[in-house]
Design a protein around this nucleic acid. Structure first.
Lengths: 333, 333
DNA sequence: CTGTTAGCGCCTTCAC
DNA sequence: GTGAAGGCGCTAACAG
């Protein structure tokens, strides 16, 4: 290992500038009134020595790290990637750093990660769609300040989410308007919050249209789940499919193509999320656009408010818009 | 703000256990030999009080944070997402945390971010494909320990990269074998390291086949760049295209479709990277598979070696494999 | 084996 | 306006 040249410390600056530590500290923080001449000299020495205060030491004494943690279930999921990106950039704009924790879909790991990363940061933004509500409720207080993403409102904790229920309802309506009366819903993970919202939307659609049949098929949240569901979908004889998300829709379309089933001629397919690639599938995917990066930015805004003693709105909900593309068309008569 | 219940400190544990700070410290770190009975008592009290040492204080005194920084140019780029994911999981497996810094393609920002995040971590993994080599050379020493991703070998700094040159050469060969003699290369960002490697591959191909014409067209690294290049591509009359990466290829194919140009019947298109969606375009994209997550894991391995006083190999190069899918076919005669 | 004493690098009352 | 001293929470010699 190359000899590490010991970091220049505040003591070095003080000594070579011929002043006390306190003075240097004051100058560096623009704090109290310091003699302008002296201040300038100190600044000069600091610059010359390439000094800047140790974030670690500052964090310890100030009790804040200028860092927040983001806990997400899967870095491979485009939606969480978007959230992370929006969050990261917004936080950076406010001079904050982001510690990232990927639970790799291990629900029980989420709790540990959240608690542990919280200790090295000033707060945590939690994306834990699969965690049970009661478990979440006991976890949150120990994480404060904390912001929750894509869950139902929580007592005393800001929530940033998208209205999956209304959006999926919109998608269902879109299919209904196209004449589809027999639709498959490819469900995601049973216990997840966003799946519950979607099921509510399905219920809404059924209630609104007595001539509409919606068949729920268990699936998942990724390509493979969609691909695996293809045969079951075909067997239902449905003319349209509401996939849990774009990934599932893409997997489904892929296998459908292999089976000689054409989209949208034989069956219409709608995704959800409008991930960056949804516009580039063939046919381009009809979906509901969840502004993931915006969600991330909003989550940061809430956290920033919490961190600066302000009161963020307890819940920020964005409304995903239905984006009609080529994968949905009028039902064959 | 709810009253924050002051964190329980080592002093609390020591007091209620009736021992000294050092003893508690020793027990918590499994350090020296402590009387088993005493140790058990301390552990009991610690558990009861929910104590765990402050990472901040430990970091300050130990001089290490168990955290590394990852600097990447764009969190929206699937390749960097893959690298980050692989890195993050590998680091987590070794008990390390990851601080993430997205320079949002601002090359001058990269230097600042790297230096700043380095100060709060034990080392940085740098993905800076666009940074000038001389600038990189002066930056790296101040970052040590540091690992560089996807750049040419650096003096004294471990590099983890993919062999773009050989892989692109393989793609070119694939097209040549299919009978293509007039090929367009859609170049990326001029000053980028990976673009230079690709140009070398193009030169190799030309040298190997005197009857091969490769036309370089300036493009970019994303969808839009590919889409924007479509007309220029058509104008060349080439029968095949080597896109800078999958994103460019997808953008190109999208616009080509709009122009009534069919892939691969009229023109073959090859991408690069094999991002998760490459297999799901229509037609599925022929490309070279860069194992991004593996690169990330390798980068972590190198960093981990550095951090534990070992000597990582100065350069780890992986060889992207050519993946032939539906977007390339025999040249029309 | 255990307690006491120094710091890690910095900020902040408190006196001058 | 400036310096001296205490402490953030913890670990690592150093004595006993």
């Amino acid at each position: 290992m190359p000899e590490a040249p010991r970091r220049v410390t505040i003591t070095d600056v003080a000594r070579t500038a011929g002043v006390s530590l306190s003075t240097v500290s004051r100058v560096m923080n623009g704090n109290a009134t310091v003699d302008p001449v002296l201040a300038e000299r100190v600044r000069g020495v600091a610059a010359e020595l390439g000094y800047s205060a140790s974030p670690l030491a500052r964090s310890l004494v100030l009790g804040r790290t200028s860092t927040v943690a983001v806990v997400i279930p899967d870095l491979a999921n485009p939606t969480f990637q978007g959230i992370l990106r929006g969050l990261s950039r917004a936080a950076a704009a406010d001079g904050f750093h982001v510690l990232i924790a990927d639970s790799a879909e291990q629900v029980d790991e989420e709790r540990v990660l959240a608690v542990e990363t919280r200790r090295r940061t000033d707060g945590v933004i939690l994306c834990a769609p699969r965690m049970a509500q009661d478990e979440l409720a006991v976890l949150l207080p120990s994480l404060s300040p904390v912001v929750v993403v894509n869950r139902a409102p929580q007592a005393g904790v800001p929530v940033v989410n998208a209205d999956y229920r209304t959006a999926l309802r919109g998608l269902a309506e879109h299919l209904y308007d196209l004449g589809h009366r027999r639709i498959v819903f490819l469900a995601g993970v049973a216990r997840s919050a966003s799946n519950a919202a979607r099921l509510a939307a399905i219920a809404d659609a059924r209630a609104a249209h007595s001539d509409l049949t919606v068949i729920e098929l268990p699936s998942g949240v990724d390509f493979n789940s969609g691909a695996a569901a293809a045969d079951a979908v075909i067997k239902t004889g449905a003319t349209a499919v509401l996939a849990f998300n774009d990934l599932v829709a893409m997997g489904l379309m892929s296998t459908l193509a292999g089976r000689g089933v054409r989209v949208p001629e034989h069956v219409s397919v709608a995704g959800f999320d409008d991930i960056p690639f949804a516009a580039y599938t063939s046919p381009p995917l009809t979906t509901a656009a969840v502004p993931a990066a915006d969600l991330g930015a909003q989550a940061w805004a809430a956290m920033h408010a919490l961190l600066t003693g302000q009161t963020p709105s307890p819940i920020v909900t964005t409304n995903p818009e239905v984006v009609v593309r080529g994968s949905t068309a009028a039902a064959a008569s």
